[in-house]
Nucleic acid binder design. Structure first.
Lengths: 256, 256
DNA sequence: ACAGCTTGTTCGAATAGCTTGAACAGGCTT
DNA sequence: AAGCCTGTTCAAGCTATTCGAACAAGCTGT
């Protein structure tokens, strides 16, 4: 139910419009001809679709090229602001960034994947592929694994079955057995570690934000270079700090 | 050309999908029944549309209600990052916020309206209706007026004709004559003032970021309470600071 | 406990409208 | 000036959307 549904008879015309949007997202601004070649339909069809999407400012035409409109930000920001704990989390994430000087992310789960809804950088924080709004596989990073470990077991199975366990580095968990061992460990510790599983040379720690039933709503992670985030700093100091923060958030949520 | 086009024969099925998305944006999560009532079509039609949009994670179903997916953030952030000067502007905006302790916004123009693509708050900064991604009328605020003043005259006419000059407060400019006088003044000064024209008790100053032809690509604004942003601070110190920053950005853009 | 209300979902038939492909207008280059 | 690109328009055909009824399932209240 919380995975993208297999629709029996989807609205194909809308699927085509989404295809256009996704193409422009992946490939940047494009001409009608380019989009037509991608869709494999008549040029006039593409034209009509592009103009329809442009009328709502989802697309913008510039020099005979179409690109995504900044309008998408509006929808995204509204979706984010409506998340119950976004406001709660934002200030705590900022504080953590100040205290640790590292990169902090807050991620939520949607359709069995994680999306970064807020990030704050400390003074020394690294820049990785991670980006606001970016979708990730749950098993590939600290916040995702923290979320995964606090979902119902059947849900975990569903997710693994749907998406598989694609690798990102040579340290990424790629088998169900490894994953269940890891989940076991996370549940005992209360937090997840990412030891170069998403990016070579990057370590991270993640802890879940749970609802009243103990199910994960999202997670917060601290990430930084492997040499700096290591030893007792990674396995004692940071966990204490992070779990404290997450605990505060959970309590505030329970009384909201 | 840079206004939302009047499409002769739009793809009505896509327009319906957009209508659904807009409804959820305005009204928050809704059930199929509620969306159906809004659309005025058969329940099965709504169902098929919702499921199609959910399959692409644009919508998320939770407890028999549909809401906007955080996925929109992804598209919005990508659209923003592709703007030539976003990176350039971001660090400067952060610096301005530190230096002034006030709220700084960067806006770009799309389809004759302005969209906030980045904002930074100083320690004392106020919170207004302004929001990341929010669309505004150009004539209603400082950044918008700064953009408007540095568009070609015909373009200004087009925009006024399309959107009119709706008021927001009793100080908002509402006639074309007033607007042209204001534009004249902005062009002479090099920056725009907003004296309670968007929010009662709020003053702001805005300056344009121009391309090599002198046409506005966007603008940066500083806003704060009327009592603090006033007198020589508003009309001398802040303009010097803002125009300096904007000038730096323009130079950097010219050599990018 | 059962009836009556919801809710979401499925399916066949009809027709609305999407797609097509050709033709047109305009701007470049050759 | 001819050719070849663009983007755009239009009529005709047929696909796919829409409709409305029927179904399953979950509540509510009698």
């Amino acid at each position: 139910m919380s995975l993208p549904p297999d629709v029996d008879r989807p609205v194909e015309t809308v699927e085509r419009a989404i295809d256009i949007i996704d193409y422009l997202k992946e490939n940047g601004p494009a001409t009608i001809a380019e989009v037509t070649a991608h869709l494999g339909c008549a040029k006039s069809t593409t034209h009509r679709h592009l103009k329809t999407l442009e009328a709502s400012s989802f697309l913008i035409e510039e020099n005979d090229e179409y690109r995504l409109g900044i309008r998408f930000l509006d929808y995204g920001v509204i979706a984010r602001d409506r998340h119950t704990f976004y406001r709660e989390v934002k200030s705590k994430v900022d504080t953590l960034a100040d205290e640790t000087d590292e990169k902090i992310w807050c991620a939520v789960e949607e359709h069995g994947r994680s999306v970064h809804i807020y990030g704050a950088q400390g003074k020394r924080s690294v820049r990785t592929y991670a980006r606001l709004g970016h979708q990730n596989y749950l098993h590939q990073h600290a916040a995702g694994k923290a979320i995964l470990a606090y979902l119902p077991d059947e849900r975990i199975d569903e997710i693994v079955e749907t998406y598989g366990l694609p690798a990102r580095t040579q340290h990424t968990i790629t088998t169900a057995d490894e994953l269940w061992d890891e989940i076991e460990a996370i549940r005992e510790r209360g937090y997840a570690l990412n030891i170069e599983e998403s990016v070579e040379g990057l370590h991270a720690i993640g802890a879940p934000i749970k609802d009243e039933n103990g199910t994960a709503l999202g997670a917060i992670s601290i990430s930084g270079p492997a040499n700096r985030l290591d030893g007792s700093f990674l396995r004692e100091e940071l966990p204490t700090l992070l779990l404290g923060t997450v605990n505060e958030i959970t309590i505030n949520l329970a009384h909201a």
